[in-house]
Amino acid sequence: MAETSHDMIVIEGLHKLFGDIHAVKDVNLRIRRGEVVVIIGPSGSGKSTVLRCINHLEEPSAGSIRFDGVHLEDPATDINKVRTDVGMVFQQFNLFPHLTVLENVTIAQTKVRKRKEEEAKKIAMAQLERVGIPDKADKLPIQLSGGQQQRVAIARALAMNPKAILFDEPTSALDPEMVAEVLDVMLGLAKEGMTMVVVTHEMGFARAAADRVVFMDHGEVVEIDSPEVLFSQPKHERTQLFLNQILQH
């Protein structure tokens, strides 16, 4: 077991079927502690599905996933317990619109982590500080810009002190001028050593923050490499094709 203690997330032989559609085919991936892994690929390539399998928002059809040594497919595993350690940031933010920003960041702390209201608020304010919007604590999500909402979503995930955070296209629903403020927060987290799995189309972020980049196509992992190598000398034709398409812009 010594060799796996460096691994935060271990995915082995992962398959996911939606009816007849084989969305994820035999994906194997090891993500080390403190590593930032960016998953890229055309839409419908199964990248988000892999991400959503890591915290069992999608139930894998086959294969095994270990998070910090815990087997997710083991019936004895309390998935809710695991999820408190895996933060997730969604494309559509998914803030709770009936709660204030502060309540968005405290509710899981008090109801799930069973922290005292007082303590939860302190942690929440510290996290809102970290993402740069402590002044919006008493606002409702609808009163915030998209970029601010996504930063609140990151603070909500951070407040649980997760061991890793999954980002599912966190900037895809944002107006272009708001992408940078979210990516800055994510870069900061990466520098601080947070384990991150990021599905994104932001190649600039991948270059700057990723330890490894995974290219997926048609549900398969085609290629995994450091950003320097993958972006400049992709080995596979499919990777070259994809990169040509998106880097032309």
């Binding site: 998914n94 109801k111 799930v112």
Partner: peptide, 24 residues
């Protein structure tokens, strides 16, 4: 996405219903 966000922070299905989905 509301249910998913609630589950992703570790709430049980019941908690997610009670604190997130039903109030809305």
């Amino acid at each position: 996405g509301q249910m998913e966000a609630a589950r992703s922070v570790g709430m049980t299905h019941g908690q997610a219903m009670r604190y997130i989905v039903l109030p809305q």
